[in-house]
Design a protein around this nucleic acid. Structure first.
Lengths: 342, 342
DNA sequence: ATGAAAGCGCTAACAT
DNA sequence: ATGTTAGCGCTTTCAT
């Protein structure tokens, strides 16, 4: 057994082992410039034998290029963001760019730290969730010297590029659909997160469109922490006990909506006859529920893919103009929203 | 409006703006060495005004120190790994170390690439899921020159440190409990993933313990892709139609178990009287189901936390001995597993 | 408490 | 096709 080297291997080690100059070794390892098959083979064999792993830090410093794309998101446990990540990863695959994830827990201060940390690695691009950042964070992003894509939301003014949906419009559309179906006594269930701007905007759009129809939200309930499914169940119970006349529940995410659905079915309440339901996101999970919850697709994978595309394009073409891409979420009425007038 | 600088700012810019040497600026920005309050203030103000973000690449090259911990996991959509990540993040918080995630999609080849990529940034530590890696990957990890923690599993020989549970033992324990409860006609439902070694080990332990009790798995069903909840539902139907005499279903994860549970309840089948159920992982989601699925906690957050602890400790104390930590998952019998003999 | 010099491991740019 | 030279932007080390 050979003892693991205390000092990591360098190009020089490979150069000496193969009898080829450092520069040529570097060329072989990066597939750049013309190198004869013979030297190429010598170098690769030496590198493999030694177990050489190039030092990207030195490489990045010398070349002023870093193949990293910083992705800054509020949470990993939201189910939504892993899907965005998948879209990003798939699109970046084969581009030579690597996504690096930072998580902010919905805290602006933490977002600032994470951004600072990531920008200090001089990434080739930044993808950040939302249009709302602290002034300091916005300043950093403006000076990042690389393309920036704000994702998920287009209700506002982006720093550079943006890809997302209009949550205000999404809330409005759902409200219109609900009114059209003839529901009148509407409850809202959401998260206790003043900093979840997208949920807030959906709610604003929702109430705005209801108001146009002469309807007000009858009651609301908010939760934090715990199992979203369980909370959805509890909140639904609470709301219906408080307001037996409620005929529709709009949930700010599908998971609590699913909890509500399970509760109502257990209680033997007629869905969507007596009470209609709708969630938001269009998560895969819904496929397995006893009944399909009405929802609205938030275009997550698509958003990730498009954001990554923009980064790729701007990396290859630094003079490209900023893009703002608004995707159109579709309502999936499922089985919990009456069609036409009741 | 000032035009964003084409060239990122350097220490030199801050030095010139503040009239203090680069070296002292560097000291201020890192809180190292003695600096007078006056210079300190001058430097900080200049840095802030300019919007300077230090270049970690140069810093890392000069100091031979990188505050990154590479975390290599098979998937983000598994619900399990985000929780491990949370454990890691929480424990690393305040240590100056930053987790960086790489995703392999359960592909050994991809794992090798991701590891190579991450190791080329010379991280301070590596956390990697599982004990099974390609020979090349193992060689890289051995020569990484930093602490390595393999997580989730302890059934095998770790490269350096390990934190996890014995999946073989977990499978055995569940089988024993099931037999003790008097079930005899047992079906298994899992994923079509030959490379999910932990699921495989659980299944091996499971059949082994059943065999000791003179019982064989009666039938099995596997799925891939799609909504786990929906697949659990479908597979359960298939299995029960094929074998009406089945009285217990062991699922390789809670999500498909939940789908099965919903299906059985809808069908009006007596759970756990006629058919008992158990899953694996102990996911939060279960709290919201109509009945609590029997399961076994896989200690995810704890595993992440402990792994991060080990990295921290070894970074501060490079001569520390490797640790192998086996956590003990507990069975949560919930409401879908009879107590005592039937 | 502050500064000057050297160099981390690699690659760009220029030889040859 | 291969080699040489000069940095990339910081931090280490040693002066003062």
């Amino acid at each position: 057994m050979n003892v693991p080297p205390r000092r990591p291997l360098t190009l020089r080690d490979v150069s000496e082992a193969s009898g080829v100059s450092e520069m040529t070794v570097s060329r072989v390892l990066r597939n750049r410039g013309d190198v004869s098959e013979a030297t190429r083979a010598k170098v690769l064999s030496a590198a493999k034998t030694l177990g050489y792993v190039p030092n990207k830090i030195a490489g990045a410093l010398a070349s002023q290029r870093v193949n990293l794309v910083a992705v800054v998101i509020p949470s990993l446990s939201n189910m939504v963001f892993p899907e965005v990540m998948t879209g990003i990863s798939n699109t970046l695959d084969g581009s030579g760019l690597q996504p690096v994830v930072g998580v902010t827990n919905y805290l602006p201060e933490r977002e600032e730290q994470v951004l600072y940390e990531m920008l200090s690695w001089r990434p080739s691009g930044v993808i950040v969730a939302g249009l709302e950042q602290t002034e300091a964070a916005k300043a950093m992003l403006k000076n990042a010297g690389c393309p920036v894509v704000q994702i998920m939301d287009v209700d506002g003014t982006p720093i550079d590029n943006a890809v997302g949906i209009s949550h205000r419009r999404a809330g409005r559309k759902m409200a219109e659909q609900i009114l059209k179906a003839g529901y009148q006594n509407i409850g809202f269930l959401g998260t206790k997160m003043p900093l979840d701007h997208r949920a807030r905007k959906r709610f604003e759009g929702f109430t705005e469109a209801l108001a146009k129809g002469g309807v007000q939200v009858m009651d609301q309930e908010f939760y934090e922490g715990g199992s979203a499914l369980a909370k959805g169940r509890e909140m639904t119970m609470t709301l219906l006990e408080r307001n037996p006349e409620i005929d529709f529940l709009y949930y700010s995410n599908d998971m609590i909506g699913a909890g509500g659905l399970l509760y109502l079915l257990e209680k033997g309440i007629d869905v969507p006859g007596q009470v209609g339901l709708a969630g938001f996101n269009g998560v895969e999970l819904l496929d397995g529920l006893p009944r399909m919850l009405a929802t609205m697709d938030s275009c997550r994978a698509e958003i990730g893919a498009k954001a990554a595309d923009i980064i790729r394009h701007h990396v290859e073409n630094p003079e490209a103009e900023p893009e703002i891409v608004e995707l159109s979420p579709k309502i999936a009425p499922g089985d919990t929203l009456r069609r036409g007038l009741g």
